[in-house]
Design a binder for these strands. Structure first.
Lengths: 412, 412
DNA sequence: CGTTCATGTTCTGCCGCACAACAAATTCAG
DNA sequence: CTGAATTTGTTGTGCGGCAGAACATGAACG
């Protein structure tokens, strides 16, 4: 799920080729289109080497030739040929299990959403029902995929704790799931066997914002997600912070006010009891059946009430602890925090400035997601695409080639 | 300061050699002695390649041949020759600026302390005075270094905020330093020009415990250091978490009790106001002039008082927030927390269990530093040695060769 | 004491990148 | 409009580094 890190392993030369091929594809994936000249400077390799790598990616059907882009350098000299993601290249399925709906998309390299579909999800629904619904959505989005395009994998964003070792959903409060192997359920419902990766929604939101959202080029960021609970995805040094079990970033249960209200986790005064969906809903007298759509409710909100201002301050105060702990360059406010911040940004900023230490405060910026509500969805696509960016040849070997036929067969 | 991470750069073959040479040395550095056979399996390279790499390291004077160690595999087959750190190889100077004293050591590869010296440091002392004192200690420990041994660099552990980009000490509360370029001061006092790396004491403690302390093989750990303030060094995924500016891990100012006592940072009820040295000193009626030696005072403490038990619970409660946030495998209690934990471990564990979420709690272990009070010192050695483990040839080229003569000359 | 087994050593071959020389495509100066 | 300058793509050559095979070495085992 996170980018590959150096282990204690040595590097042999076939690893060099794999790495360079993957890195080149990662650059094109991130930028959309690049000239070969830009690639030589980015990667520090010789022109001729780049030519060889590009040729191999084109032969694999992953990249394709593009006319020199106008945006590149203008001046004397032969214009450099462009490289871009192939139109009918490999793709992944991205799934975003939201609070009240599931969104499924067919996503190609470059983060391009080719087709999307969604269906409502009832809270407390059985996992196999949700799995069947997701499988049906997957069939829909796969329907019109180019025949030659292989399926590389499925990425799923889950609002809950996902075990890192095997992707088991340990706990998803909104869905009332405990220890659900949702990846296996979806595969079974599809009748396919492809690589499935699962991740926490905030983690994936952070990943997407880092790759192609508001934080491109920012290597230390935190995506704080207000969903029903509160969680954070942390990218530090360009790498997703996952923790030993994969549960890092559970900031919703930071100790906030020991004399505060009881939290469903059994303690008292967790941050979530002040800035969680239920707390906000109460503060703005939102009807209980609309809590799942709190972001929309807040977006339609007029003038912020004093209660909402207090919530904004509490948000800022909690962010201060996070900023002191992680010293990020950017904090992205996702989920319903996006709408909340637009209403009470002054209070949030002031709350942050009140409690944060000067050193980490001076360099931090609060922003909104560059991808809107699609961050977790595109993050799910990213983790599914990751093998392709580590070793394109191996990932394509493992990919499913005749998806269209297989999925149609099962559906019929 | 952290281990090298893959960038977007491509890999050319001279980089391969550098990396493999460095990785081999890193393995020997970590294990002390290894057989070539173990190295082939560890690094996944061919016998013949390992032979070449080992030969080059021996030619560099960094490694040397050792008889087959008895601890390795026993059975049929030719015994594999050992590789160990050269006796008169390169070394670094490690400096640990403590609360009341400065410790300086000459440390070789493998973390071996060849010689150490220390001197008292007065709180609020001018930086140049401390620098002169440290320089004098450095002369002492360099005195009897082998003539052929080059000096690779100096690593300094500072109890405060160190800016990542240039090692500037932004703030060291105990020393009352603001924006002090301590590395430059020491170099000037020495009259030498060698690479200097500075780091926060908790960060370096974490690094040392990870490499050769209680957390060998543990890639997700937190070293919580009770000094005068409270800080944490965080290693996640095997990499030190530093944050954008380098100030990550300032857990002393986590919001703990908003109605608590005022903290020197300007807020109220920071965690440090409950588990900081001054709070504990008050709880155990420790005279103010002994606060700097709080760890010794606690070590000599008999039966824990109720106040101390309360402090233990507060420590556990704060650790819960940290565990929820980072999901570490191990939490190391350094500084005076070592003695405190030995007194009130029950309360600490219970406090942690009270507030931590089940998922991160189930896999976490509290331990004491495997290196005792030397963790920050050895961590300082690690960051100074790091260049050698990334690219041995380049680091030795940049190293100072006739240290003995140069230092003696300046001292005379 | 010979066999077996794992490892060190040496030599050869292959793979992948760098480099040089040349060709191509565009800008710029006159 | 034309030629020089500039930058890049292309092709062929060379080198560095690792893998693998064949042989040598040294210890345990029967």
């Amino acid at each position: 799920m996170s980018a590959q890190r150096r282990t204690g392993l040595g590097t042999n030369q076939e690893a060099v080729r794999r790495h360079n091929l993957g890195t080149l594809l990662r650059h094109v994936h991130a930028a959309g289109q690049l000239s070969r000249a830009e690639l030589t400077t980015l990667m520090g390799l010789n022109r001729s080497t780049i030519a060889g790598l590009v040729g191999e990616l084109e032969a694999l059907g992953v990249a394709e030739h593009a006319s020199p882009s106008g945006s590149a350098r203008q001046g004397a000299g032969r214009p450099s040929a462009g490289v871009r993601i192939a139109d009918a290249g490999p793709f992944v399925i991205a799934v975003d299990l939201g609070v009240d709906k599931a969104v499924v998309a067919r996503v190609g390299l470059g983060g391009r959403i080719h087709r999307r579909a969604q269906a409502p999800v009832v809270g407390g629904g059985e996992a196999w029902q949700v799995g069947a619904s997701v499988a049906s959505l997957i069939r829909t989005v796969v329907e019109d995929a180019p025949a030659a395009s292989p399926l590389v994998g499925i990425g799923i964003s889950v609002p809950g704790l996902v075990r890192r070792s095997d992707g088991l959903v340990r706990l998803a409060p909104n869905l009332e799931w405990h220890d659900v192997s949702f990846g296996g359920i979806v595969l079974a419902a599809l009748g396919l066997d492809v690589p499935v990766s699962l991740g926490n929604d905030a983690d994936l939101g952070a990943l997407a914002e880092h790759t192609r959202g508001a934080c491109v080029g920012v290597d230390d960021l935190i995506y704080v997600s207000g969903n029903v609970g509160v969680g954070a995805g942390v990218i530090i040094g360009g790498h997703l912070l996952r923790g030993y079990g994969g549960y890092a970033g559970e900031v919703g249960h930071l100790r906030f006010n020991p004399t505060g209200r009881p939290c469903h986790c059994g303690n008292r005064g967790c941050w979530e009891t002040e800035v969680g969906a239920h707390a906000i809903a109460e503060a703005i007298h939102c009807p209980p059946d609309r809590v799942a759509q709190l972001d929309e409710v807040l977006a339609d909100f007029g003038k912020p009430s004093p209660e909402l201002r207090t919530t904004g301050t509490a948000l800022g105060h909690g962010l201060a602890s996070i900023v002191n702990t992680f010293n990020p360059q950017t904090v992205v406010l996702g989920g319903y925090f996006t709408s909340l911040y637009q209403l009470v940004s002054t209070e949030v900023s002031r709350g942050l400035a009140d409690l944060a230490l000067p050193a980490p405060l001076e360099s931090v910026t609060l922003t909104l997601p560059g991808l809107g509500g699609d961050s977790p969805l595109l993050g799910a696509a990213e983790i599914a695409l990751e093998p392709l960016l580590v070793d394109p040849v191996a990932a394509l070997d493992a990919a499913l080639d005749d998806v269209h036929a297989r999925v149609a067969m099962k559906a019929g």
